[in-house]
Write a protein that binds this DNA or RNA. Structure first.
Lengths: 185, 185
DNA sequence: ACCCCCATGTAATCGGTTACATGATTCT
DNA sequence: AGAATCATGTAACCGATTACATGGGGGT
């Protein structure tokens, strides 16, 4: 069976959080879901159109005086049903195999100088640290929000997943760096 | 700039490990690199052909009496140079954003019953445990191999990355499950 | 002037999966 | 007779990225 496409459901989900334009959905995904999801305008706009055509959402043109016109989307009852259906349906596809270019290169590291491998892991670690900093920022944003969202609890859960796995990866970097350096001299 | 395609380099790398047919490359990737890479025949065979056309590898037809004919590939000196070049070149693309359908659904879990969310996390945990079991199997395979490979050290490094991050994710499952159950009654 | 933010959209292309086709050998 | 493993390949399709196009408003 062909794998399901999650994109329309993400967009429906976004509508429940107050994001109602393609632009703001992209923003929020980049900001608050970036630790486990990403999307591009090339998917968003055609997908929103399709959702409208199929009656899962309704579009409304809203002229703004100081900013360009925008199109707001709202979920219909049919859309809500589809979202809930998707949420409670089982995930058949197993675990996501996260392609990791850093590990890929390390796998073949016998064919490069040790210093090069060590430097690569240092860079990897640096990127992981930056990721952690972003997570802390997201956490602040959620907790300092004026309006307590009912979603908040779940958002913080997913964030913690990011914290834990990223921290574990950083620990790995430190261990491996040390072992590589011991083997170098 | 368009993102680089790693597939040909993976295949060149495979050739250095003794895998010299498309079939065996796929097998090894599924077995020993599955924690950070995957590939399909639809990529492998056209890619091997292209590598041959460009002079990075040479193909040789080898008839076998008891098994179907196979085509073995060997890296040329040009290929080796390309591989080493790729290995030492910087990774510009930052960190891989691993799409995670489980976290995606949890993010919107306000719209489903708590029991459904708990069940989903239990399933996620189960899959992570299975993954750990596979890693242990891979570890055994590497350590029990008759011929000590010079690659071994690096292979075990990448495996440890899998262990650490997967274990962290399992811990997260346990924490979150508990908190969801407390909030349920 | 220039750049950034807002805002929507499309076309070309790419990387990758899935399904299909073929066919020999070995094991049950 | 049928299933499993070995072995190679192609065509259709899809999800997604990238680059491009447009255009108003605000800040330096």
């Amino acid at each position: 069976m062909p794998k399901e496409n999650d994109t329309p459901y993400v967009l429906l989900g976004m509508m429940t959080t107050g994001c109602n334009t393609g632009y703001s959905m992209k923003q929020m995904i980049d900001n608050s879901l970036s630790h486990f999801w990403k999307i591009s305008y090339g998917q968003i706009y055609p997908s929103l159109k399709k959702l409208t055509d199929e009656g899962l959402a309704v579009a409304k043109k809203e002229p703004q005086k100081d900013k360009p016109d925008k199109i707001t989307y709202e979920m219909t009852s049919v859309g809500r049903e589809a979202l809930e259906n998707w949420l409670t349906s089982p995930i058949e596809s197993g675990l996501p195999i996260q392609k990791n270019e850093w590990l890929l290169k390390l796998f073949f590291s016998r064919h490069e100088p040790a210093s090069s491998a060590i430097e690569k892991i240092r860079q990897y670690e640096k990127q992981l640290e930056e990721k952690l900093a972003i997570y802390r920022q997201i956490e602040q944003n959620i907790q300092n929000a004026e309006f307590r969202s009912e979603d908040e609890r779940f958002w913080l859960f997913t964030l913690r997943h990011g914290f834990k796995t990223t921290t574990a990866a950083i620990e790995w970097c430190q261990e491996v760096t040390e072992e590589l350096q011991n083997g170098e001299e």
